[in-house]
Computed example of a mutant assay.
Amino acid sequence: MMDFPELNRGDRGEAVVQLQTWLNRVGAMLKDDGDFGAATERAVRYAQGIAQHASTGTVDGALWSWLGSQPEPFPLLATNGLAFIAREETGGLNYYSLHTRWPHYPALASGVTIGVGYDLRFTTKSEFNRLWSPHLPPSHIRELEKDIGRKGSKTRVRELKKAGIEVPFDKAWKVFVEHTLPEYHGKTLGIYPTLNKLPDLCRSTLVSLVFNRGSSLNGERRREMRAIRGILVEADNPSYHKKKIKMLLADVEDELISMQRLWSPETGVYKRRQKEANLWRRGLQAW
């Protein structure tokens, strides 16, 4: 049984990994690397604020107890895998507070995006209102409705920021875990039916992929996504032993890397494919 010691910035080890994992339950979006650095301290203060504890940056028994009582945000995905997706969509807590809390434009085919990867180009007015009206002022809702179904631009997001439209992170997190994540888990399951049989972090890898690229399998640009489906179908053979299944599933990492052909190396999506490949490998190794 793990002890729950007092922790401060500079500490390292398994207790810090446990802390980071539990902080991720409430939206910290941390890498579970066991290093209590600036990002983890920021997340501790963030959690202390939610828990209405004093903002000390020190993890004491009261914070351990509160974090331990928090539910898993989406039980079908490992909390640290879920945190990976949210971090890729927002840049993390600090980046969110500095940039992503305002409407932003991720470029390429995206529309104006708010919160944790909520793209206004790919929603409807009724759905947008259902999800966001409880969280944003009516004037902000009316202005953002203008971007539904439309491709985004840097000019438009500058206009929205100038108008004072922003999304508090606690509201963004709520919509993400209650709606957006279940929606994309369902889309991923639709094209990869054996998703829930995979190791925890591998499930998160594929949901991250679909969250970023959508669920279409049509066309030359989707050949690796189709190849992944074939690998998963082959690996689901009940006569195979675990070692053979792991060998087959290892090929998914290669397909994720192969997808980088579609983007320039300096782009975020190119780098995201590498991170997803790393997460997939980690999931297999832990299985």
Results as ranks from 00 to 15, higher is better:
287 W>S: 14
46 Y>H: 14
61 G>I: 00
152 G>E: 02
100 T>H: 09
191 I>S: 13
109 A>T: 03
72 E>W: 05
78 A>P: 00
40 T>A: 15
88 E>L: 06
121 R>N: 09
204 S>Q: 08
217 L>E: 13
224 E>V: 02
252 V>K: 03
19 L>S: 03
141 I>V: 07
19 L>W: 02
37 G>H: 02
172 A>I: 00
200 D>E: 15
116 V>Q: 09
71 P>N: 13
70 Q>C: 07
91 G>M: 01
53 H>S: 12
257 I>Y: 13
260 Q>H: 08
283 G>S: 07
32 D>Y: 02
287 W>G: 10
201 L>Y: 14
287 W>A: 12
273 R>A: 15
256 L>Q: 00
45 R>K: 10
106 P>W: 05
160 L>T: 08
272 R>G: 06
47 A>F: 01
253 E>C: 03
71 P>S: 15
194 T>P: 00
151 K>P: 01
1 M>C: 04
88 E>S: 08
209 L>S: 08
21 T>G: 12
29 M>K: 12
54 A>G: 09
148 I>P: 01
29 M>T: 06
65 S>Q: 12
262 L>R: 11
196 N>H: 08
257 I>G: 06
232 L>Q: 13
100 T>F: 09
212 N>D: 07
128 F>Y: 09
177 V>H: 06
161 K>P: 00
124 T>W: 01
160 L>W: 05
244 K>M: 07
276 E>F: 03
189 L>E: 14
30 L>R: 09
198 L>G: 13
192 Y>I: 05
99 H>Q: 11
222 R>V: 00
179 H>I: 01
137 P>W: 11
27 G>K: 02
188 T>F: 05
8 N>G: 09
238 P>S: 09
